[in-house]
Nucleic acid binder design. Sequence first.
DNA 1: CTTCTCACA
DNA 2: TGTGAGCA
Length: 268
Amino acid sequence: MKKEISISELAKLMRVSVHQIRYFEEKGVLFPAYIDENQYRMYGIDEIYRLSHILLLRKAGLSVQAIRHWYDEGTPDDMQQLLLESVYQIEAELDRLRDLSGLIHKVLNDYERFGDRAPSFQVIQREPLVLSSWFETDFNTELDARMLAQQGDTQPGLFETDIHYVYEEECLRRVRLCTKAIDMDGDVVLPAGEYLSCRFSIHDEEELKQHFDQFQAFGDQSPFVLTGPRILVEKSYLSLFTRESLHYELLARVDRSVGNAAEREEKR
DNA sequence: CTTCTCACA
DNA sequence: TGTGAGCA
């Protein structure tokens, strides 16, 4: 009985494919101890160790190229360096995955809180919001693909972040499309404070106008005044859950320093 | 059972 | 960076 083993025995022992062992040979990192008369590759104990190392390094994220290079002319310090670089990459990947997980949780949470519901009004306290303005358009013109494309390189991940439509005060003719500023160079700033918020979902753009009116009506019969721009936030990713509805939040800053509409009426 | 080669993801 | 098929 020979001391060496065939490629399939080695493959079974190391739980890899025969193919992969031959691939490592082609790439110059693992060679048989010798070739048998029948042209079969034969492997000894040294090759078993060598293969273990290769597999470990592959698992650690080193390329076969890099392994080859190290076997050719690598020092122990080089190996330490290679593994360090590898661990940095893995940690970067962990960060990426954490971000991704966070994004999905955010979507899930948002859906649970504001999924499909009748319009709900509430006054909420908001942190200052910095938006980076994107472009301006008319109230009536619908957003189309070309308008998006013409804006050139905007933020990546367009629809992961909510699109904010900021309507100019008083007349709602002009709309400013914004996204949340990632860095601090936003150009539209909404101050912290109390905001009236209404969340709703619609099936047709037509319904938007009604909600604006309802929103205004709600403001008029409340003990405060709505001030500043109306902000329509399109929760674009909530549309993931339903095939045919769009989700929005309508916001306006609350001003309690002025009397409400009814009181103003009295004073006249 | 092994080898090699080629195409493919 | 491997895999799968086909052939000898």
